[in-house]
Design a protein around this nucleic acid. Sequence first.
DNA 1: ATACCTCGAGTTCG
DNA 2: CTCGAGGTAT
Length: 796
Amino acid sequence: MADAAQSARAAELRALVNDANYRYHVLDAPAIPDAEYDRLLRELEAIELACPELRTEDSPTWRVGARADSAFAEVAHALPMLSLGNAFDDVEQQQPELRHREVADFVRRIVDETGDPSPVFSVEPKLDGLAISLRYEQGVLVQGATRGDGSTGEDVTANLRTIHAIPLRLRGEAPAVLEVRGEVYMPRAGFHAFNQRALERGEKTLANPRNGAAGSLRQLDPAVTAQRPLAFYAYGLGAHEGFELPATHSQTLRQLARMGLPVSPDVETARGLEGLIDYRRRIDAKRDALAYDIDGVVYKLDRFDQQRAMGFVARAPRWAIAHKFPAQEEMTEVEAIDVQVGRTGAITPVARLKPVQVAGVVVTNATLHNADQIARLDVRVGDTVIVRRAGDVIPEVLAVVAERRPPDSVPWTLPGACPACGSAVVRPEGEVVARCSGGLFCPAQRKQALIHFASRRAIDIEGLGERMVEDLVDLGFVQSVADLYRLSLDDLLELKRRADARDGSTPETAKAGKVATRWAENLIEAIERSRSPSLERLLFALGILQIGEETAKALARSFGSLQAIRDADPILLLAVPDVGPKVAGSIASFFAQPHNNEVIDALLANGLVAQATGQPSASLATRLDLGHLLRAAKQLGAPLVRLGDTSVVRIAEVRRDLAALEAAGEGGLTALGVSADAAAAVFASLADPYWGPRLRAVDAVMMALRSAAPHEVQGGPLVGKTVVLTGSLSAMTREEAGARLEALGAKVAGSVSRKTSIVVAGEAAGSKLAKATELGVPVWDEARLLAFLAAHPTGA
DNA sequence: ATACCTCGAGTTCG
DNA sequence: CTCGAGGTAT
């Protein structure tokens, strides 16, 4: 049992050690010598060993914890970790104001949209490390996670604890919850010292500080991480509770520093474009003298209210940008030019390069994108080329060194046949990419389709990567994605046996057998776990051309079930936001292929269940009116060329569905002010053997949706009102605003007419606002809209 | 009809 | 990360 003296001494030692860390890492002013620090730490360890109950959660002796058993747990970030848009200099440009065009555009957008002629930015070096999030509860570090895909990362708490720059307890008054975002990096001095020592001991060296930092955090054994010279700088906040948020980013960073979190000493504030460029020039000048590697600088709009006004696009904020330094360039030789076949059959030429070090890693491959790119650069086998890592990551061939070209070289030409299946390679008129015409007959495309299906952002089958898929397809175990759900443990073991036999490696020891069983069980379990994906993930996973994550999400939300999408006519699909004629056609033709339907039916038969809302969204029903029907049919090629947009609007205002339109007859349309030509075109389309039935079928679906959709909001404050949104909103997207308004009973229209009840004008509103003023339609600004929405909460 | 802007698709290396 | 192209707003 601990006595009072021991307890007091332990508390004192904790304070001393934590304070020493703070002074060293945050204030950059060490107060005690290293040897003294070590002595204090050892004394604390000794006390805690004797009296384990004295080992508090924030004790610095926790810095080396237990080994993780296999993988890191997933952690959902309470607030997503953002990625930044990039700006590069136009190196060709001599005039400075044009050289920084992208940064100038960034500043101009901010000036335009905030109305602040000289906005203030918080500016900082962009460290070349690994972004992480630290969660403090009641001031104690409880969890640390990598960025991952932005919404979910990996729990690397044990490894982060070993980093002395990361406080285990915050100083001063602790908020209930504080998530701190920052960069774990390896200081250059530490990197060199580490490699020096590794070299002396004959151990593996680190390729570069960046990989050193990333690799260190992924160590399963924290004791290994503890040996790595890692450091940390905080640069932002995630979720927080009980934390009084200052008005600006720079004040927040100062507050974090007061709480004991290290912040880069090179963080400053700058005003306007000139301030940004000046800061960047100064950092560039001292780049080599910095203690850490950087790949650029980051500009963040300092005032949080202005940040909110700018909002986001997809995952990136519009109020911050990374201004990167030009990438390092190296010379090497092209040994060969191969082609790869992608998921969609796209034929991509790849340069096989003589290995060369570029910005810290050895590059051997570089994509050449397409035949145009090769022609533009005139790259040939045997050429000496200049290579760089674009954004310091992806290798890219910049140019050919003409003087070094061997005399016998010949221009590269696109192969006429697919290297994987021999089918013809076709390149449609006007398109840049050439494609293998083999479709799913082509093994390369089949493999890519499987890899895509299993990938993390799609169905997410852990352990089913490229290697695995290769074997499964080559050895005939899997033809389509549906076959995955039929695989048994025995199948996988058999696969493994045959693959080993093929590769000539047959370590038939008992241990290897166990490992194989374990591996097969894991894969089966991963497949099992993937049986109930969300509808949007399933849609994305199917690999329909043009359907990425966002479009899949929009489709899932609009239709609510896979079957509804399979049945949907392109006219209906066009009612989905972001779906136009091309995308709608792509979806329709995918579901028109018997083979695809067989695979989907097999998937369902094999127990795959998409988790759908089951309810088509209200917004789909509201978008679908007679006007949409006519407009969409016209876009898709119905004989309605004579039907102008104003006529469509007139018709849609008066007639609710086709039955009403037909009852009115051509005369009824001309009475609405529609030209005789246009009215005739409408009825001609209805009489058309192809378009007539289609229009009627879609009309029927439309009416069914109307009655089923929950959009007939009883007593909604906006029932019977038509609202038009224009310009850009800051607090939400137009999409969201539209959905909120619809939930209140409004009909959201695309253009302003006399019938429009309200026009909501965001920033930079254009002609619609002018028209609204002209027609005397009431105009709301964003504040008015937000106030209204706040006053009329909808359950959502 | 035109200008932006966002999304999709393909890709590297450890 | 970059490029091309589809979609939407003007």
